[in-house]
Structure formats: C-alpha cells, structure tokens
Design a protein around this nucleic acid. Structure first.
Lengths: 255, 255
DNA sequence: TCCTCGATATACTCAGACAAATAGAGCCGC
DNA sequence: GCGGCTCTATTTGTCTGAGTATATCGAGGA
C-alpha cells in the first residue's frame, strides 16, 4: 500500500515494539497529552479529519481514543468530540500513563512527587511484609538477593533479581492494592533510573541496603523493616537526582 | 432491527446510565472478570463468536476489549485471542476497576486491604497538607465543613461538601499522585458505604472527626493532622464493617 | 535433537453506509 | 424582551464485509 504524502505513515511508526496500529496511535497521542502539547480543555479534530491526518482508518483511531478514555486522559461525547480531560481526571498511576510521562519527559517536580509517594507507601509495605511474610517468601527474597550480589544491577540478570526481590516483598504484604500500586511506580522509576545512568553509571552499591531490608523482614522486625526501606527509597532518590551535581537545593513547589 | 432470540439484546442493557454500547459491554465483561466468573488464563471466544453472542457488532465488541486491555484485565494477541490476565496485572486502582469490584461484589477481604492502604496513605497526606496548605485551601475546607455540619451526610448537598473538604485537603498536599490515588479510593469506598447504609443508617456523627482534621491543618500542625486523619479512617472502616453486628473478629488472611 | 519453513487460524485494519444523540439555531408563547 | 420548546445539522456511534498481518503449530530437513 502506498503511503500518501502526509508526514509519516504507519510504516515509519512501526519502529517501536510490537504494538498494533491503534496502540501506537494511543501512545503517540498519550505522550502529546501528558507532555502538555495538547492542553486540558482542548478539543481534538473530528474522527474523520484526525484519522485522515494520521493516515490510519477511523476504526484504528477510534480504538486508540477508547484506550485514552479508559485511562482518563480524554473525554469523548457525541456531537461534541474528543476533549482533553482536566489533569485531576488523569489516571496518573496507570502504568502506561506513568511510562508516557517519565519515559519521554522526565519532569523533575513530578519525579519528586513520585518519590514522596514511594516514601509513604514502601516503608509501610515493608512493615506489613515483616509481619506477614511466609518462610517461602523469605527464601525467595534470599535467593534474589544472592543473585543480585553475584551479578550486579549492570546486568540484565541482576535487574531481574532486583525485581524478584521486590515482588516477593510485595506479595508478603498480602495486600493486592499495595502490589498493584508499588509495581506500577517501581517500573516507572526503573526507566528514569536507567535513563540517567547512561550518563553516570551507578556508583553506590545497592546490596547493603537491600540486605538490611531482607534481614529485618526475615527477623520479622516490622519497625526495622520500615526504617531500612525508608533508607532504601532515600538512596534511590539520590540515584535519580544526583546526576546534575551542582544543584543540591530543593526546588520550590508550585501551588 | 430485530433482536434475535439470544438472552438479552442491547435494549435490555440500556437500562443503566448513558453509557454507549461498547461501554456497556466493557462494564459487563469487566464485572464478569473481577468477580471471578472468568478466571485468569481463561481464553474468551473469538471476536466473531463473542460479538455474535452479545448481539453487538465486532466493532463495538473490539472497542470494549480495548478498554479492558487498557485497564490490564485482558491481554489480546493475534492468533491467540483474548486471555484474562493474571490478577497481578490488573490495574486495581483504576476507578472503573474499583467500581466494578466494589459496586457489585463487595469482597470483605479486599475491602479490608483497601482500608489498609487508606490507613497508610491518607494520614501521610494530611501531614503533608498541614505543611503546605495555602490560606485559600484552609478557607475552602472551612466552608465545606460548615456546609457538612448544616446539612448532614444524608443529603446530597452534605455529601458534596464532604467531597469538597477532601478535595481541598488533597490539593493542599501539592502531590498529583496522592490526589489521583486517594480520590479513586475514596470514590470506591463511598459506594460501599452508601450500599451498606441502606440497611443501617449512619449513627455516628462524622463532623467532630472532620473538625479535628481541619483544625490541625489550619494550625499547620502536621503530626496532629496525621493522627486526626488516622482516626477518621478508623471510624470510616467501622462504618462499613459494623453492619453485620455479630462478627467483630478479624478474618484470617489467605496466603 | 534442534532448526527452518510453510500452512492456518486469529486478530488487525480498512472502507463505506446508516443510526443515534445532542448542541445550537430558530421559533413560539408569554 | 425572555424563557422554554422544537427542529435541524453535525458529530460520534454502530454495523457489515472484505482483505492484511501475525504468531502458533506441525512437517520436513540438517
């Protein structure tokens, strides 16, 4: 099929992943929205015009819009059209929305807010895990920790082990909402960390921090687990923000 | 168009809300999934068969599936079909998913987990609000509190004022993720509370609890705000669980 | 035993037509 | 002049059927 003369056709967009066409359109539009290129209240073009401009069928465009609507980014009504929703309606903790925010436009203030949330939730999760963990979960954490120590976080194996460690910890909380919340956030943070570390490889050794968390949970010591995890999150924050060395001060927070 | 002889047509389903056809199908399927009628790993019928059985077009069915996929409930791949995702992949904090879970199948263990999350997040949010609130936000909380006191939570006006109170509080945290998370959870909890209160109207007066939260935030006293909000959440938990009076004991938590 | 490759079933994309819903203009009655 | 009603035009919603792309599964060969 001949790609018409308009900007870039579907082929040019197929470069990334194994997303289907509607998935690509949703991702592209989603990034435009969360990055502020389209602003809340803006009205998108009609389906025919919009799909035509993207060189996709109306079907594919509509499915993309459904995805965005399911994530709270847009609101679409008959006779009105597709309107960008106010930011309060966005599902900011949706994994895709998080990835669109942090994979392409790592806003510093937002990153700080995300770590503020981590600092609230993850120590509490570690505390619960210390109370409820089973012997099997402790064993899985121990194995993951060993693998992490052997290979480092520089290798794929090491990063998978790191994920296993945190997955086992979350499962130990026996709270599905904590699992869902924390794994979404952790994935988003992982991307920004990898992004930053391209310029400045990780200098600190993360193993001791993890080991202290592990030992507290293995010992069934909730308050120690809370403290150890709080330290771990603090260290992780440093890993993502210390890249621009000259700016140790905190940014002001807009109202 | 004649509705064929199969179970119920779109007309019968149009009873609820102003959802479009694809929205209704998504909701119906979503409820079937979160309620366990379809289990993780199950493979749904092919598009043609499934849409035929629901008496809708493939287009409408596909858009519904896109919505469910966007919320992590299903995974759909060419040549394979539509498969129910494992529960760890569900976006449990998505407002729609939460509503499907709690509006039709209020699982007691899950409700307890949700309040566990509230108990972690909301006191911390109140603490942040006490540190960062603006004069305007305090004023809005005061007005909402007055309206709540005048009309009770039994009236629509009172419930809206309650929402305004918590919205202003969340805005004061200046953390968009906390806003998104807490408002989703609060909405879900509100439904279950209303559901329960049909049988047993609220006996406790919620105003004093709210007033203590307000005063702590107005006084810029973070630790008092944290404590007051913790008490408020505890009270809210009692409101939802005390309906079956004879069972004060805690349920065991499955592994 | 493993790899390559082709057949096949399924979702994906497209195009065009018709239906439904509603914002907004225009009309009517007061 | 103004509030409320109807009517229309425009946009999204739904349907159909055809053709394409993709990944599994099985057959054949190294």
């Amino acid at each position: 099929m001949a790609v018409s003369g308009r900007s870039e056709g579907p082929d040019a967009r197929a470069r990334r992943k194994s997303l289907r066409l509607h998935g690509m359109v949703a991702r592209d539009l989603g990034i435009l929205i969360v990055s502020g290129r389209y602003k809340p209240g803006d009205l998108l073009d009609g389906e025919i015009e919009a799909s035509d401009r993207l060189n996709v069928s109306r079907t594919a465009y509509r499915e993309a819009v459904r995805i965005l609507a399911a994530k709270g980014l847009v609101e679409v009504r008959p006779k009105i059209g597709t309107r960008i929703s106010p930011r309060e309606k966005w599902h900011l903790l949706d994994p895709d929305v998080l990835s669109w925010i942090f994979k392409y436009e790592p806003d510093e203030d937002l990153l700080e807010s995300l770590f503020e949330l981590r600092k609230i939730v993850e120590p509490a999760a570690a505390e619960l895990a210390a109370k409820r963990r089973s012997a099997d979960q402790v064993e899985r954490m121990r194995e993951a920790l060993e693998t992490m120590a052997e290979h480092t976080l520089a290798s794929e194996i090491g990063r998978v082990a790191d994920q296993d460690f945190h997955t086992a910890l979350l499962e130990a909380t026996a709270n599905p909402f904590l699992v869902s919340l924390t794994s979404s956030v952790a994935a988003a943070v992982a991307w920004t960390t990898i992004f930053k570390q391209r310029r400045q490889p990780l200098q600190r050794d993360p193993i001791p921090d993890h080991r202290r968390v592990y030992e507290a949970i293995a010992d069934a010591d909730p308050s120690a687990a809370r403290q150890a995890m709080a330290d771990l999150v603090d260290m992780a924050l440093l890993d993502t923000t210390m890249a621009p060395k000259g700016k140790p001060g905190k940014r002001s927070r807009a109202a």
